[in-house]
Design a protein around this nucleic acid. Structure first.
Length: 866
RNA sequence: GGGCGCGUAGCUCAGUUGGUUAGAGCGCCUGCUUCACACGCAGGAGGUCACAGGUUCGAGUCCUGUCGCGCCCACCA
C-alpha cells in the first residue's frame, strides 16, 4: 500500500462525493430512528437561480460538521436539502433571458411565462446541487424538496387558509413599499435605507383670504401636486389663528385645509407639514385620521399620473426638477438648504421605493411575535451566540404587519377567489366552482402571488410532509438546529419561528446558530459590481475541498464576520498535505515491518511511554472537541484538531514511532482520522478506507458511519505521561543548545545528562539520542541536590559551553525567571492572597516557584563558569 | 435617534465561567536536500492586550468613562 508522493485532492474528492450518494450513505430510514436519539436540520434553501458563493460554503461546512459529528455519535441524523423558488429573483432572471430573445413577459402571457420559468428551473435549477455535493455536504438527497413542489404548495395553501380563518390574514388598501423596478409591493425588510445628500426645499403656500403665507419644508417637492392638507402642531402658538383655514396649493391652485395634528414637530423646519396622503406613510395616517382625500400623482411606473396635470407622464425626478423651476419662477420657492435624507431602496433592484397606496394582503404579526418571543424567552429556542437575542427581541417588539402579496407571476398564487358578480372574496384550500356567496360562476383567483419568505417560513415542517402527520414529521420535528447567516434573521429565522409556532404548535428548531458574513481580504462585502467575489469552486479546485473547509472553519469565530485571506487556504492545504504524508509514513512503515493486516480491536496490556502519552493527548483532544462541538465553537474544534495532528501526532509521536514502529500507531491513527472526519471528510474517507482494507476485523462501510471517539474522562489522566514529557523537555533543551552553539546538525555530539530523580530507561534514552543527535552518558545527581536542583542538566561536549548565543539565552531566561519569581513570591507572601486564593492556585504557584528558583540557580552557575 | 459589536505580535485573528511566564496562521531572522512531507524540519525575534479610572488577593477577561472603527434597526417632513 503505497501512497502517491503528493496530496492531490482532485484524485479522490469527486470519487467519494459520488460514492456517498450512490451508496446512499446519508439516506435516513425513519423507521429505524430511536426516539430521543435523532438529530435533524434543514438546509437554508438556496435560490434556484443561485450558484454557490463562499457564504453558502461556510454555512454548509458548519452544518456538515455538526451533522457528521452527530451521525458518528450514533444519532439518526437527517439533513434535508432543497431549494427556494425565489419569486422576484427567478422572475427577473427569466425575464432577462426572454429579453435576450426579444420577448416580454406580458406578451407571453402568464401561463406561458410560468411554463418558461419551470423550464428554466428544470434546466438550471440543479446547478447548485452539484456544487453542494462537491462541498461534501452529507445531505439526504432522497428527501430533496423545492418550495413549489406539490406537497409544499399544499402546505402553503393550508397555512394561508388557517391564518385567514384565525383572522391573522387580512386584505386591504394600505401604504406599501412599491418597487417601480420590480413592479411589485415588497415588505419592510426587503428595503434598505441609505443616507443621501439631498435638499430641503422651502415652499410657501398662500393662506386663503389673507395676505399671509405658510412656508413648508419638503424633501420631495414633486409630491406637492398630491397635497390635500397642511398640518401644524395643535399647540404651536405661531399658527393657532390658522386652524380651520384654507391654503392654496401652488401650481395646482387647489384649496386645502390647514389642520392641527401632532405629526407636525414645531422644532423642525417651519413647523408646517404638507400632507400627501397617497405618497407618504405618515401622511397616510394623518389623512385617515382627518378623512382627507387621496390624490395619487405618482403611478406604479414611477411616472406622474394624469392627476399631475401638465406633469403627467414625466418621471418622478424629472417632474421634481420642473416643479422646482416653476416654483422658483413664481417666487414660491423661498429657500433651499442641503439636507441628508434617508431614502428607502429595494433590496434586490436598488430602485428607490415609492410609497404607494394599494390593495394588498397582510399578516397580522403582533400575536405571532409575542408567541415567538415567549419561545425564546423560555429557552424553547436557544440563540448561539446568545447576544443575537437582543436584536431579535428589538425587532419583534417593533414588528409591523407583513405585506405578503406580490404582483409577480412566479410564486404561490394566493388561494383567494374574487367574485365578479357579488364582489365577495373567498379564501379556500381548493378552487371553488361557484361563488359560495352568490353561487355565481364568475369567480377568479387573485392574481397576486405570495412573498417567497412565506413558503420558506414553513420549510422546517413542510419538507417533512406537513400538513400530513408523516413518520418524518413525528421523528424529526421540531428540528434540532438551524445554522444560517445572521443576515437573514428577520427575513427567514424570525418568520420560521412565528409561523412554526402558530401552525404546528411547536418551535421549528431548538437551537439557532448564526454565523457572520464572509468578506474579502480587506473586509469589504463581496459583490459582483465590486468584482471582489471569490468563487468557492475555484478555491476547491485550487486547494481541495477539505483544505477549504478547514480554512473556513478555523476562521469562523462565533458570530464574527470573516475576512477571507488566501494564506489561510494555503496553510490549510499544507495541513492536508501533512496528514497525507503522515499517512504515507505510516503505510510505509507498515510495509517495512511486514504488517499486512492489523486488528483495530487489539487491546494492549501495558502502553509504551510514547503510547501512554499520545493516548492521553488524543483523549484530551476528544474532550475538547466534545465540549467545543456541543457549544457550537467550530473554530475551536478545528484549531484543536490542527494542533493535535501537526504538533503532537506528527512532530512527536510519529518521530519516535519511526524508531520503533508497531501496530498501536495504527490504532491511534485510525481514531484520529475519525475525529477529523467531520472536518475533512474526503481525505479521511480515502485514508480510512485504505487503512481498513488491511483490517482483520469487520468495519462500517464508510468512516462517516464509524463511531466518533468519545473522551474517556479522567481514567486516562492517571496514566504515566511524564516519561515522554521528560523526553520532550530534554530533546527541546538539547536542540536549543545545539542551535545556540551553531553545531552542525549532522554531527552527533557527546553529552552528559545529569538527572535529579532517576535514570532514564533505555528506550527513552535512545529516543533522546536520536531526536537530538546525541551520544549520552547519564548519571544521577549527587545526593542532597533534592528539590533545590532542576530536574535535569545537560552538558554538551563542545568547546564553549556559554558562547555569545548561549549567554544571551541564559541571561534572557534568567530575566524571565526572575520576573516570574518576583511576582510569585510577592503574591505568596501577601497574607490576603494566601487567605483568599483557592488552594490549588497557591499549591501550583509554590511548585512553580521552587522549580524556577532551581532553574535560575543552575543558570547562574553556568554563567559563572565563564 | 436607538441597539449591537470591535480595538490583543508587522498583517489576519483566537483567547469558555477573572488564576501562575498571553496564543495561532501568515510574514520576518538563523540553520538544515534528517531514508513522510521544502505544502517540510529545527531554532529564534516580535505584544505596557486602544486610553483613563474602578472592583478584586489577582483583570486581556468584570464595571464606568473617553477616543477610534464597523454593523443593524428607525414613518420626523
Amino acid at each position: 500500500m503505497q501512497l502517491e508522493k503528493v496530496y492531490e485532492p482532485q484524485r479522490f474528492e469527486p470519487h467519494w462525493a459520488q460514492w456517498w450518494i450512490e451508496s446512499r450513505i446519508y439516506q435516513v430510514d425513519t423507521a429505524a430512528a430511536v426516539p430521543g436519539r435523532t438529530f435533524s436540520l434543514v438546509i437554508p434553501p438556496p435560490n434556484v437561480t443561485g450558484s454557490l458563493h463562499i457564504g453558502h460554503m461556510l454555512d454548509h461546512t458548519i452544518m456538515d460538521v455538526a451533522v457528521r459529528w452527530r451521525r458518528m455519535s450514533g444519532e439518526t441524523t437527517l439533513w434535508v436539502p432543497g431549494s427556494d423558488h425565489a419569486g422576484i429573483a427567478t422572475q427577473m432572471v427569466v425575464e432577462r433571458q426572454l429579453a435576450a430573445e426579444g420577448l416580454k413577459r406580458r406578451e407571453l402571457g402568464r401561463q406561458e411565462f410560468e411554463r418558461r420559468v419551470w423550464q428554466w428551473k428544470e434546466e438550471y435549477g440543479g446547478r447548485i446541487n452539484n456544487q453542494i455535493r462537491r462541498e461534501g455536504a452529507s445531505v439526504d438527497w432522497s428527501r430533496e424538496r423545492f418550495t413549489m413542489d406539490p406537497g409544499l404548495s399544499r402546505a402553503v395553501r393550508e397555512t394561508f387558509v388557517r391564518l385567514w380563518e384565525r383572522g391573522l390574514i387580512y386584505r386591504g388598501e394600505y401604504m406599501v413599499n412599491w418597487c417601480p423596478g420590480c413592479q411589485t409591493a415588497i415588505s419592510d425588510v426587503e428595503t434598505t435605507h441609505e443616507a443621501v445628500e439631498g435638499r430641503l426645499w422651502h415652499i410657501r403656500y398662500k393662506v386663503k383670504g389673507s395676505a399671509e403665507y405658510l412656508t413648508v419644508a419638503t424633501t420631495r417637492p414633486e409630491t406637492m401636486l398630491g397635497d390635500t392638507a397642511l398640518v401644524v402642531h395643535p399647540e404651536d402658538k405661531r399658527y393657532l389663528h390658522l386652524h380651520g383655514k384654507t391654503a392654496i396649493l401652488p401650481i395646482v391652485g387647489r384649496e386645502i385645509p390647514i389642520l392641527a395634528d401632532t405629526l407636525a414637530d414645531p422644532a423642525f423646519g417651519t413647523g408646517v407639514v404638507k400632507v400627501t396622503p397617497a405618497h407618504d406613510p405618515n401622511d397616510f395616517e394623518v389623512a385617515k385620521r382627518h378623512g382627507l382625500p387621496f390624490v395619487k400623482v405618482i403611478g406604479e411606473d414611477a411616472r406622474m399620473t394624469a392627476a399631475a396635470g401638465q406633469y403627467s407622464g414625466l418621471d418622478r425626478f424629472e417632474a421634481r426638477k420642473r416643479i422646482i423651476a416653476a416654483l422658483e419662477q413664481s417666487g414660491e420657492l423661498v429657500k433651499v438648504e442641503p439636507y441628508t435624507v434617508n431614502i428607502a431602496k429595494c433590496d434586490r433592484s436598488k430602485d428607490i421605493i415609492e410609497p404607494l397606496v394599494s390593495t394588498q394582503w397582510f399578516v397580522r404579526m403582533k400575536s405571532l411575535a409575542e408567541k415567538a418571543m415567549h419561545a425564546v424567552r423560555t429557552g424553547q429556542i436557544r440563540f448561539v451566540p446568545d447576544d443575537r437575542e437582543v436584536v431579535f427581541f428589538q425587532w419583534m417588539e417593533n414588528i409591523h404587519d407583513w405585506c405578503i402579496s406580490r404582483q409577480l407571476w412566479w410564486g404561490h398564487r394566493i388561494p383567494a377567489w374574487h367574485c365578479r358578480n357579488c364582489c365577495q372574496t373567498t379564501v379556500a384550500r381548493e378552487e371553488p366552482a361557484l361563488c359560495p356567496h352568490c353561487h355565481s360562476t364568475e369567480v377568479e383567483q387573485d392574481t397576486d402571488v405570495l412573498d417567497t419568505w412565506f413558503s420558506s417560513g414553513l420549510w422546517p415542517f413542510s419538507t417533512l410532509g406537513w400538513p400530513d402527520d408523516t413518520p418524518d414529521l413525528r421523528a424529526f420535528y421540531p428540528t434540532s438546529l438551524l445554522i444560517t447567516g445572521f443576515d437573514i434573521l428577520f427575513f427567514w429565522v424570525s418568520r420560521m419561528i412565528m409561523l412554526g409556532i402558530e401552525i404546528t404548535g411547536d418551535v421549528p428548531f431548538r437551537e439557532v446558530h448564526m454565523h457572520g458574513l464572509v468578506r474579502d481580504a480587506e473586509r469589504q462585502k463581496m459583490s459582483k459590481t465590486k468584482g471582489n467575489v471569490v468563487d468557492p469552486l475555484d478555491l476547491m479546485d485550487q486547494y481541495g475541498t477539505d483544505a477549504c473547509r478547514i480554512a473556513l472553519l478555523i476562521s469562523a469565530a462565533a458570530g464574527a464576520d470573516i475576512a477571507l485571506k488566501m494564506d489561510r487556504f494555503e496553510s490549510s492545504r499544507a495541513f492536508a498535505n501533512k496528514l497525507w504524508n503522515a499517512s504515507r509514513l505510516l503505510f510505509m512503515n507498515m510495509e517495512r515491518a511486514g504488517i499486512t493486516t492489523w486488528d483495530p480491536n487489539q487491546k494492549v496490556e501495558s502502553l509504551s511511554t510514547e503510547d501512554a502519552w499520545i493516548e492521553e493527548r488524543l483523549n484530551a483532544c476528544a474532550q475538547t472537541l466534545d465540549d467545543a462541538l456541543k457549544a457550537h465553537r467550530y473554530h475551536e474544534a478545528a484549531q484543536t484538531l490542527w494542533d493535535f495532528v501537526w504538533k503532537e501526532f506528527c512532530d512527536w509521536y510519529l518521530e519516535v514511532k519511526k524508531l520503533r514502529f508497531d501496530s498501536h500507531a495504527l490504532s491511534v491513527y485510525e481514531r484520529m482520522l475519525r475525529l477529523l472526519h467531520p472536518f475533512m471528510p474526503f481525505l479521511t474517507e480515502e485514508l480510512w478506507q485504505r487503512l481498513m482494507s488491511m483490517s482483520s476485523a469487520g468495519h462500517p462501510k464508510s468512516i462517516s458511519l464509524a463511531p466518533y471517539p468519545k473522551p474517556a474522562g479522567v481514567a486516562l489522566a492517571d496514566r504515566n505521561v511524564e516519561g515522554f514529557r521528560r523526553v520532550q523537555r530534554i530533546v527541546t533543551k538539547a536542540r536549543e543548545m545545539r542551535a545556540d552553539n551553531k553545531v552542525d546538525p549532522k554531527l552527533e555530539l557527546e553529552s552528559t545528562l545529569h538527572l535529579r530523580d532517576s535514570l532514564l530507561p533505555q528506550t527513552e534514552l535512545s529516543f533522546i539520542e536520536s531526536l537530538a543527535k546525541l551520544k549520552i552518558t547519564q548519571t544521577l545527581m549527587e545526593d542532597g541536590a533534592g528539590e533545590s536542583a532542576p530536574p535535569f542538566t545537560l552538558l554538551l561536549t563542545i568547546q564553549s559551553q556559554a558562547n555569545g548565543a548561549s549567554r544571551a539565552r541564559l541571561e534572557k531566561d534568567n530575566a524571565r525567571l526572575q520576573k516570574a519569581i518576583d511576582s510569585q513570591s510577592r503574591q505568596l507572601s501577601d497574607e490576603n492572597f494566601v487567605a483568599k486564593a483557592p488552594p490549588h492556585v497557591i499549591e501550583s504557584m509554590r511548585a512553580k516557584l521552587t522549580e524556577y528558583q532551581a532553574q535560575l540557580k543552575k543558570n547562574r552557575e553556568l554563567l559563572d563558569k565563564e
